[in-house]
Nucleic acid binder design. Structure first.
Lengths: 162, 162
DNA sequence: GGTGAAATTTAGAACCC
DNA sequence: GGGTTCTAAATTTCACC
């Protein structure tokens, strides 16, 4: 896990965006096929992909798993409001949230809450245990509100590119 | 008296879960390497992956793109509360939310809101335009609250397995 | 950025438990 | 039914222009 030293070469042209658009849908698409789609040669496509991986535009290549099919059917959203705004306490909370495997995503936000967590668990009892650990076990957590997902209307993890 | 093993559907054994655990981190991992890691042969791994793709356990294989690096740096969370609970109106709202490219994820939830949206835009002006389209343009939207992400503390790529 | 050949990976068939 | 060893096809990778 090394930091990326913001190269000046982080610019993406239209062809790079087209490649990303394809890989966001299916990163198993052969470079040859991509090359035909954007009128380039396969090695040129390969070089662009490698560059985007190196500079961190492409964070990872992953398989998306349906939570319901692996017995992790419950998705929850949690708004967390903190008591004190001291940086050390915030950082401690961040670390504890990020360390929990049930916490799939965690964002520090502005608005009527301080953190928004997306939690995936097998059963509500697992969530109850998590709340005791993360929230009731932290004096700096003033309040939290939970929303239980009943339906994933849209799951797209891809970012709209033009 | 024969038991119904419900084979061929969604039964996953420990080896399947181990494979998923690997592919969720890096789906470019060669089958050969996976095979070594879980002490199996490459074709066996290949058959298991193919099966999990066919029955929908693996939803897709994608590249994860850093929004900030493609000039889509603003992530927003929106709680939407509806006026009427009529199914037709809900479905219409679902469709309009899902159809918007800026809406990366949409969930139907229980709690003090009806929908939670995760929105990614280039600039706040894009979000303002989106609110006019989706919320102010829909009489059935009673209220919505927006949270602006200031930091991605944890970016959930994978579902915790095991 | 393009062209070609080599190396790696994936896909498939035959066989065994 | 699932696993293993083999071979063939496809893809990625790396020389070079």
């Amino acid at each position: 896990m090394s930091e990326k030293p913001t190269r000046g070469s982080a610019e993406l042209d239209r062809l790079d965006l087209k490649i990303l658009d394809i890989l966001q849908r299916d990163n198993k698409t052969p470079q040859r096929t991509i090359a035909e789609m954007i009128h380039l040669s396969a090695p040129a496509v390969q070089r662009r992909i490698r560059r985007m991986e190196e500079i961190g535009v492409i964070r990872a290549n992953v398989a998306l798993v349906d939570p319901a099919r692996v017995d992790r059917s419950i998705t929850l959203f949690v708004e967390v409001e903190m008591e004190s705004e001291r940086a050390e306490l915030y950082d401690a909370a961040k670390r504890s949230f990020a360390a929990a495997p049930e916490v799939q995503q965690c964002y520090y936000v502005t608005g009527e809450a301080d953190f928004i967590l997306i939690v995936i668990v097998r059963a509500m009892s697992d969530y109850e245990a998590l709340t005791r650990r993360l929230f009731f076990g932290n004096n700096n957590v003033k309040r939290f509100r939970t929303f239980v997902s009943m339906e994933r209307v849209k799951v797209g993890l891809s970012i709209p590119l033009e």
